[in-house]
């Protein structure tokens, strides 16, 4: 693993240092936007884009290989299938417990929280699925666009 904390006095020391300081805060903000999506501006899509942008920033400053050490290509393939699977899975689970597709109040029969609480919590589950899918797709789009599909050497 290439050491991200290593100080090399190159011409892009400022970019590397500022990116290293910014990326954790960007990721925490992305998680905040996702989990507060159902009662404030934001949601799965915006939070997913912010999380993906943190990995894109890592790839811009440290090279594509470094970003692929933090999110591997196989982990990316798993994540961009997991996101839609969570979305469809929650929807189908609602139909299995007697409701309509994405009618979260039906999940009350699975875990008794009350139908109103489930309507709020079900939206949260959907937001997590959307966020995971959008994050991995954004990173994959950047990898493919900047390397011409080879996903080895990029910007």
């Amino acid at each position: 693993m290439r050491d991200i904390h290593e100080h090399t006095a190159g011409e892009d020391l400022i970019i590397k240092t500022s990116v290293r300081l910014m990326v954790p805060f960007i990721q925490v903000f992305g998680l905040y936007v996702i989990v507060h999506g159902h009662y404030s501006p934001g949601g799965g899509f915006q939070g997913g884009v912010i999380l993906g942008a943190s990995f894109i920033l890592l790839a811009l400053a440290f090279g594509m290989k470094t970003s692929q050490e933090y999110m591997t290509v196989s982990a990316n393939a798993v994540l961009n299938n997991l996101g839609p699977a969570i979305f469809i899975g929650v929807g189908v689970l609602c139909t299995l417990f007697g409701g309509l597709f994405l009618d979260y109040s039906a999940l009350d029969k699975l875990i008794p929280l009350g139908p109103v609480e489930w309507r709020s919590f079900g939206i949260f589950l959907i937001e997590v699925g959307v966020g995971v899918a959008v994050m991995s797709i954004m990173v994959l789009l950047y990898w493919n666009l900047s390397s011409g599909g080879a996903m080895d050497e990029g910007l």
């Binding site: 936007v33 501006p41 934001g42 949601g43 899509f45 915006q46 884009v49 912010i50 993906g52 942008a53 894109i56 811009l60 954004m138 789009l141 950047y142 666009l145 900047s146 011409g148 990029g154 910007l155």
Partner: peptide
Amino acid sequence: AVDVAFTEATVGAGVSTIFFIAAILR
């Protein structure tokens, strides 16, 4: 429309600009 503004700031001004630059360099 704060939600739309948020989407525009992240996708329009943020990520799509990087995608365009990456495509131009190729």
